Amino acid sequence: MARKSIWTPANVVTCIRICLVPIWLVVAEVCGVGDGSSFSMPALVVALFFMALSLTDKLDGYLARSRNEVTTFGKFLDPIADKLVVVVSLCYLLEQGEASAWVLLIVVAREFLVSGLRMNIATKGVVVAASNLGKWKTATTMVSISGILLAGAFPAGALRSGMFTLFDALLVVAVILTAWSGIDYFAKGWKYIVEDE
């Protein structure tokens, strides 16, 4: 039986997403966030570019499931791509003064801790199923970052202020879901950590 190639359409899309992250960052650094003096087309480009990056996560998932081509390589690479998109964009927002360092700390700490737990219990042949909290966490984070970037394109006024307020609040919700999903994962996996103690 011929061995299946890891280069399925879904995995190709995931690899493209990873390659586009540094390109997005360069574009974002060059364009910057609008200063509010007038509508900023460069800032709009940054926001739309990020939205496209976010949506490719849905695309590769759809391709993998619809074509029945879910692979181990894809399961490994897709979460990495998601984390890369989120962490790089939060670093950019922090640099621009549009996000708190606490947001980045909680997101990165959660990923390190959960990844460490996964690796540890995987050595015992155990796979802890991810809950829907993880999906909600990712979706809320992507939407909030997209909204903050989009708000930066508008001129100063009620619309810009309202958008920043709304999506900053949504980012807080995303951080809460991030912490909650991490706690949930540890609650499910902790018994495998301590069972040999």
Results as ranks from 00 to 15, higher is better:
Met1Cys: 11
Met1Gln: 13
Arg3Ile: 09
Lys4Trp: 04
Ile6Asp: 13
Pro9Cys: 05
Val12Cys: 03
Val13Trp: 12
Cys15Ala: 15
Cys19Ala: 15
Leu20Arg: 02
Pro22Ser: 10
Leu25Glu: 09
Leu25Tyr: 11
Val27Tyr: 00
Ala28Ile: 11
Glu29Lys: 10
Val30Arg: 13
Val30Ser: 09
Val33Arg: 12
Gly34Ala: 10
Gly34Val: 07
Ser38Gly: 09
Pro42Trp: 04
Ala43Leu: 05
Ala43Gly: 08
Leu44Phe: 15
Val45Gly: 02
Phe49Met: 12
Phe50Leu: 09
Phe50Gly: 07
Leu55Tyr: 06
Lys58Asp: 02
Lys58Ala: 01
Gly61Asn: 04
Leu63Asn: 04
Leu63Gly: 03
Arg67Phe: 00
Arg67His: 05
Asn68Pro: 01
Glu69Thr: 11
Glu69Asn: 08
Val70Leu: 01
Thr72Gln: 13
Phe73Thr: 01
Gly74Asn: 00
Phe76Tyr: 14
Phe76Cys: 05
Asp78Leu: 06
Pro79His: 12
Leu84Ile: 05
Val85Ala: 14
Val86Ile: 15
Val86Asp: 07
Val87Trp: 08
Val88Asn: 05
Leu93Glu: 03
Leu93Ala: 04
Leu94Pro: 00
Leu94Trp: 10
Glu95Pro: 00
Gly97Cys: 11
Glu98Trp: 10
Glu98Met: 15
Glu98Asn: 14
Ser100Asp: 15
Ile106Pro: 00
Val107Met: 07
Val107Tyr: 03
Val107His: 06
Val108Gly: 06
Val108Thr: 13
Val108Arg: 07
Ala109Val: 08
Ala109Phe: 09
Arg110Ala: 08
Glu111Pro: 08
Glu111Lys: 07
Glu111Val: 05
Phe112Tyr: 10
Leu113Asn: 04
Leu113His: 04
Val114Asn: 07
Gly116Val: 12
Leu117Asn: 04
Leu117Cys: 08
Leu117Trp: 05
Arg118Cys: 03
Met119Leu: 14
Asn120Met: 13
Ile121His: 02
Ala122Gly: 12
Val127Cys: 09
Val127Lys: 07
Val127Glu: 11
Val127Ala: 13
Val128Ile: 15
Val128Ser: 08
Ala129Ile: 01
Ser131Glu: 02
Leu133His: 12
Leu133Gly: 15
Gly134Glu: 03
Gly134Trp: 01
Lys135Arg: 11
Lys137Thr: 07
Thr138His: 00
Thr138Val: 07
Ala139Leu: 09
Ala139Met: 03
Thr141Leu: 11
Met142His: 07
Ser144Arg: 05
Ser146Glu: 05
Ile148His: 10
Ala151Glu: 06
Gly152Lys: 14
Ala153Lys: 10
Pro155Asn: 03
Gly157Thr: 02
Leu159Gln: 13
Gly162Lys: 12
Asp168Met: 12
Ala169Glu: 06
Leu170Gly: 10
Leu171Met: 14
Ala174Glu: 09
Ala174Pro: 05
Thr178Pro: 05
Ala179Gly: 15
Ala179Leu: 15
Ala179Ile: 14
Ser181Tyr: 04
Gly182Lys: 10
Ile183Arg: 00
Ile183Ser: 03
Asp184Trp: 00
Phe186Val: 11
Phe186Glu: 09
Lys188Ser: 12
Gly189His: 02
Trp190Ala: 09
Val194Leu: 07
Val194Ile: 15
